[in-house]
Measured scan of single mutants.
Amino acid sequence: CAFTHRPCSHPRLEGQEFCIKHILEDKNAPFKQCSYISTKNGKRCPNAAPKPEKKDGVSFCAEH
């Protein structure tokens, strides 16, 4: 993984420079932040999710 703030030993995603944990660092990657919002604390999930086809579409990470 090419994350520069600290060493990361996670494997890169195929065709990308970053792992799934750090892929949002790459603005050109086909990922965006997960659209899930917790009902308990109102916070948005920080994980990466595939970018949807539509610009305003929602997309969820593997956990959600």
Results as ranks from 00 to 15, higher is better:
Cys1Lys: 07
Cys1Ile: 04
Cys1Arg: 01
Cys1Ala: 03
Ala2Met: 15
Ala2Lys: 07
Ala2Phe: 01
Ala2Asn: 15
Ala2Ser: 04
Phe3Gln: 04
Phe3Met: 06
Phe3Tyr: 07
Thr4Arg: 02
Thr4Trp: 02
Thr4Ala: 02
His5Arg: 15
His5Trp: 06
His5Ser: 08
Arg6Asp: 12
Arg6Ile: 14
Arg6Cys: 14
Arg6Leu: 08
Arg6Lys: 14
Pro7Gln: 12
Pro7Lys: 09
Cys8His: 00
Cys8Trp: 00
Cys8Val: 00
Cys8Met: 00
Cys8Gly: 01
Cys8Ser: 00
Ser9Val: 12
Ser9Met: 08
Ser9Gln: 09
Ser9Tyr: 12
His10Pro: 00
His10Thr: 10
Pro11Phe: 02
Pro11Ala: 14
Arg12Trp: 00
Arg12Tyr: 00
Arg12Ser: 10
Arg12Glu: 01
Arg12His: 03
Leu13Ser: 03
Leu13Arg: 02
Leu13Trp: 03
Leu13Ala: 06
Leu13Gln: 06
Leu13His: 05
Glu14Asn: 03
Glu14Pro: 08
Glu14His: 04
Glu14Ala: 10
Glu14Tyr: 08
Glu14Phe: 04
Glu14Arg: 04
Gly15Gln: 08
Gly15Ile: 00
Gly15Phe: 02
Gly15Ala: 04
Gln16Leu: 13
Gln16Phe: 08
Glu17Asp: 10
Glu17Trp: 04
Glu17Asn: 14
Glu17Pro: 08
Glu17Tyr: 10
Glu17Gln: 11
Phe18Val: 02
Phe18Ala: 01
Phe18Tyr: 10
Phe18Trp: 03
Cys19Pro: 00
Cys19Ser: 00
Cys19Phe: 00
Cys19His: 00
Cys19Val: 00
Cys19Asp: 00
Ile20Lys: 06
Ile20Thr: 05
Ile20Val: 14
Ile20Gln: 11
Lys21Gln: 09
Lys21Leu: 09
Lys21Met: 07
His22Arg: 00
His22Lys: 01
Ile23Asp: 03
Ile23Glu: 03
Ile23Thr: 06
Ile23Gly: 04
Ile23Gln: 08
Leu24Asp: 08
Leu24Thr: 09
Glu25Thr: 09
Glu25Tyr: 13
Glu25Asp: 06
Glu25Ser: 10
Glu25Cys: 05
Asp26His: 05
Asp26Ala: 11
Lys27Cys: 06
Lys27Pro: 11
Lys27Val: 10
Lys27Ser: 11
Asn28Gly: 10
Asn28Cys: 08
Asn28Lys: 10
Asn28His: 14
Ala29Gly: 09
Ala29Leu: 05
Ala29Pro: 05
Ala29Glu: 03
Ala29Lys: 06
Pro30Leu: 06
Pro30Ala: 05
Pro30Met: 04
Pro30Glu: 04
Pro30Thr: 06
Pro30Val: 04
Phe31Tyr: 05
Phe31Cys: 08
Lys32Pro: 05
Gln33Ile: 09
Gln33Trp: 03
Gln33Glu: 13
Gln33Ala: 15
Gln33Thr: 15
Gln33Ser: 06
Gln33Tyr: 12
Cys34Gln: 02
Cys34His: 02
Cys34Thr: 01
Cys34Ile: 01
Ser35Ile: 06
Ser35Lys: 13
Ser35Gly: 13
Ser35Met: 13
Ser35Pro: 06
Tyr36Asn: 07
Tyr36Leu: 07
Tyr36Glu: 06
Tyr36Gln: 11
Ile37Leu: 13
Ile37Cys: 14
Ile37Ala: 06
Ser38Gln: 11
Ser38Glu: 13
Ser38Trp: 12
Ser38Tyr: 12
Ser38Ala: 15
Ser38Asp: 15
Thr39His: 11
Thr39Gly: 12
Thr39Arg: 10
Thr39Gln: 10
Thr39Glu: 15
Thr39Asn: 13
Thr39Tyr: 04
Thr39Lys: 11
Lys40Trp: 02
Lys40Tyr: 13
Lys40Ser: 03
Asn41Cys: 07
Asn41Ala: 13
Gly42Asn: 09
Gly42Tyr: 11
Gly42Glu: 15
Gly42Gln: 15
Lys43Arg: 13
Lys43Asp: 14
Lys43Thr: 14
Lys43Tyr: 13
Lys43Pro: 12
Arg44Thr: 14
Arg44Pro: 12
Arg44Lys: 12
Arg44Ser: 14
Cys45Trp: 00
Cys45Asp: 02
Cys45Val: 02
Cys45Pro: 01
Cys45Arg: 01
Pro46Phe: 07
Pro46Tyr: 10
Asn47Met: 12
Asn47Thr: 13
Asn47Gly: 11
Ala48Met: 07
Ala48Val: 06
Ala48His: 03
Ala48Gln: 04
Ala49Phe: 09
Pro50Cys: 10
Lys51Gln: 05
Lys51Tyr: 03
Lys51Asn: 06
Lys51His: 07
Lys51Ser: 10
Lys51Leu: 10
Pro52Val: 11
Asp56Tyr: 07
Asp56Met: 02
Asp56Phe: 08
Asp56Trp: 03
Val58Leu: 13
Val58His: 15
Val58Tyr: 13
Val58Gln: 15
Ser59Gly: 14
Ser59Arg: 09
Ser59Val: 11
Ser59Asp: 09
Cys61Asp: 02
Cys61His: 02
Ala62Ser: 13
Ala62Glu: 10
Glu63Trp: 11
Glu63Thr: 13
Glu63Val: 06
Glu63Arg: 14
His64Asp: 03
His64Thr: 03
